[in-house]
Design a protein around this nucleic acid. Structure first.
Lengths: 189, 189
DNA sequence: TGCATTTGCCTAAAGCCTTTAGGCAAATTA
DNA sequence: TAATTTGCCTAAAGGCTTTAGGCAAATGCA
């Protein structure tokens, strides 16, 4: 049996694909080994363990999301930036449900601090620069935006909005309108 | 060995406690059997399988949440109702993190339709009756509320808001202010 | 080019979880 | 009290995880 050419990065990428196909929590070292037609133990030279694999997939997803977010923000401001950025989350979750689920993985503080997660926070603040918020309201608004983006996408993905009118597309647009209106008119304490 | 007195309900309750202690995804038939000091196979007369057990825990959590939500709504309206109801979600998630995670389990459509999930939607609409929204805006608003509640609680639980000022308590209060302001001034399309 | 070292994948094995089949005894019912 | 149901058990098969140790291909160095 020759060598297949495994390495940590290939495993991570393949794990991400696997996650999109069968769901993030079905990503197992065994399934990944099958995909490379290789014995399970062989993977343990490249990833520390199952948790390590999942963490790497999560970091990959966060990176990709940040990448797309940055691209969406380029040259945009105000509501335009808001909807484009939010759309990135939503589209990514639809295109890559497994990766999106991975991006939600609870990371230990150090890993999280070193992840692209911090970029996400910075980008949200960049969006808010188009509105007139000063600290600490900006932070509150960042947290609210994060909540809405994550909450909506997550409820939509779990089927919460399907099979009922009006369709989710319309609600999404109106939620963007609402967020824009809210940010332009953020209430004083 | 005498009989321990297992039944589906006791298993479900114990499973919920276990979830709160060790996390919902650590709830296994084996762990539950250990907790009752009983052989694993014995549980299979009471629950169909591992997934069945998890689903039952999810339904229990949804029930408890609906129960608390209804109690919180009694005698309240407007912003008072809004914050009380939202607080139920947040408090429940803190008191019962495992159960709250269970409540997020993706249920198949029939199970979901028969669950207390529908009560939750009705209660959100009840809250909105204190504001001047008409269809389809009410539906959009319900979806947005659900997103914010779920999103905020879920980000907070995963540690997203800890270790940074201002503290989550304050942000939560300001998000409630913001939602109230938004609902009183929902933008036209 | 030949040898030494590193690297990559393998076999083996132990531990834990799930699920099914079949059995015995306690509890319930008649 | 006898018959039936019910509850928990033993046994066993199959899957995932992880570690230990081995052989051979690839790489590095004379």
């Amino acid at each position: 049996m020759g060598r297949v050419g495994l390495n940590t990065e290939r495993l991570t990428r393949a794990g991400a694909e696997l996650a999109d196909e069968v769901g993030f929590d079905q990503v197992t070292v065994s399934a990944l080994a099958r995909r490379f037609d290789v014995k399970v133990a062989s993977l343990y030279s490249h990833v520390k363990n199952s948790q390590d694999l999942r963490t790497r997939i999560a970091l990959l997803a966060l990176d990709e999301l940040a990448e797309r977010g940055a691209a969406a923000l380029a040259g945009r401001a105000g509501k335009d930036a808001l909807t484009a950025f939010a759309g990135v989350y939503r589209d990514y979750a639809r295109e890559h449900p497994g990766r999106y689920a991975a991006a939600q993985l609870r990371l230990d503080p150090e890993t999280a601090a070193a992840s692209a997660g911090v970029k996400h926070a910075r980008m949200m603040r960049a969006i808010l620069r188009g509105y007139d918020l000063t600290e600490p309201d900006e932070t509150h608004a960042v947290r609210m935006l994060g909540s809405v983006f994550h909450g909506y996408v997550s409820l939509e993905m779990s089927g919460g909005f399907s099979h009922s009118a009006p369709d989710s597309e319309e609600s999404w647009a109106r939620v963007m309108d609402a967020l824009d209106a809210l940010l332009r008119n953020w209430p004083a304490p």
